[in-house]
């Protein structure tokens, strides 16, 4: 298999000013607004944002499924406009839907997929057997796709995306709709793949915990723009800070404490947002004791990516998820 790598620059994805607009009900909707992206070889990046933020549209542009309205991108060494076939040859893509044809059998689809990527018969069979083994598809290899459970279908989707050993794998909402057990199982497979092959992985998700635990780098998208891009730790540290809550005997104590250490008093409670809150907590207690203010109870909570999203947008992702269950519009 010919394999031109993107090693020269060590960049897997490099996009500038990627924009997608499409007409909807007489207006022009800007689904993606001038997005710049740099993803290095071997990175695991999570694209986080509410439904309709433009995550999938961005992914569809990067994977050549959708021509951008404007902007440029080099993906796995090829230009998405000038050499889409080059991009397609080197990337793996697992879309939001189910990749297997409903009347096809699992092993047949893997064999067909190998042929689609120009692999020889023997190579395809060996690779399919390997993926059936590693993604635990052995029990269902002879079954029709339409008879599989959601988790089984998703594992097949991943296997289909990996048949040609892509350098870069795109996953669009890989775990949406799966039960917690299947989600955990799917993630195990993705983490294993990463460890064993060093494949660059670019995924979209609206599950906060997923982005937090698994990705080294989180890009937050909202209203078609990337509004933050860093490690989950750095985002939380710089944008949200730790939450320290202190409880006092009386509201007047709380007010006095808030004035002394800075923070917000509400009834008997004081909340302070501070970087390194776990270390600040003993200091607060000592300082307040010196002033004769006794802390009755204290808690420290590390920020979540939801706090980051809240700090950035004034909204929480959980709320967004609750009233925007409809998937984002996909332009024709």
């Amino acid at each position: 298999m010919p394999r031109k790598t993107a090693d020269m620059t060590n960049q897997m994805i490099s996009a500038q000013g990627l924009t997608k607009t499409f007409p909807a009900k007489g207006k022009v909707v800007e689904a993606v607004r001038s997005v710049d992206l740099e993803v290095g070889a071997g990175e695991l990046v999570a694209f986080l944002g509410p439904n309709g933020a433009g995550k999938s549209t961005t992914l569809r542009m990067l994977t050549t499924l959708l021509p951008p309205t404007s902007g440029e991108a080099i993906v796995a060494g090829s230009d998405i406009r000038r050499d889409p076939a080059g991009v397609r040859r080197r990337i793996g893509y697992v879309g939001q839907g189910s990749s297997g044809g409903h009347t096809q059998r699992v092993r047949d689809e893997l064999h067909a997929q190998g042929a689609f990527y120009g692999m020889g018969r023997r190579e395809t069979r060996a690779r399919a057997a390997e993926l059936i083994d590693s993604l635990e598809l052995g029990q269902i290899a002879g079954r029709q796709v339409q008879s599989l459970s959601g988790g089984q279908k998703r594992r097949l989707d991943i296997a289909l995306g990996l048949i040609h050993r892509p350098e870069l794998l795109f996953l669009d909402e890989p775990s949406t709709g799966l039960d917690p057990h299947s989600r955990a199982n799917l993630w195990e497979h993705i983490v294993d793949l990463r460890r064993e092959t060093g494949t660059t992985i670019f995924l979209t998700t609206h599950y906060l915990d997923e982005a937090d635990q698994l990705a080294e780098r989180v890009m937050v998208m909202d209203h078609g723009q990337v509004i933050a891009d860093d490690t989950a730790w750095a985002l939380k540290e710089s944008l949200a800070g730790d939450r320290v809550s202190l409880t006092f005997e009386t509201a007047s104590d709380a007010a006095a404490a808030a004035a002394r250490i800075g923070g917000e008093a509400s009834g008997q409670f004081v909340t302070v947002t501070a970087p390194g809150g776990d270390r600040a907590l003993p200091r607060y207690i000592r300082s307040l004791a010196d002033a004769g203010l006794e802390v009755v109870a204290a808690t420290h909570r590390q920020p979540t990516l939801d706090d980051v999203f809240l700090a950035l947008t004034g909204r929480t992702l959980r709320e967004e998820a609750a009233h925007a269950e409809a998937s984002e519009p996909v332009p024709a």
Binding site: I91, Y93, G97, G101
Partner: peptide
């Protein structure tokens, strides 16, 4: 109708991303 169904499930999209 079969293609229509594959367009809805995502199976057709997979073939569009392949270098075919």
């Amino acid at each position: 109708a079969n293609l229509l169904f594959e367009m809805q499930t995502g199976s057709h999209e997979r073939t569009l991303v392949a270098p075919l």
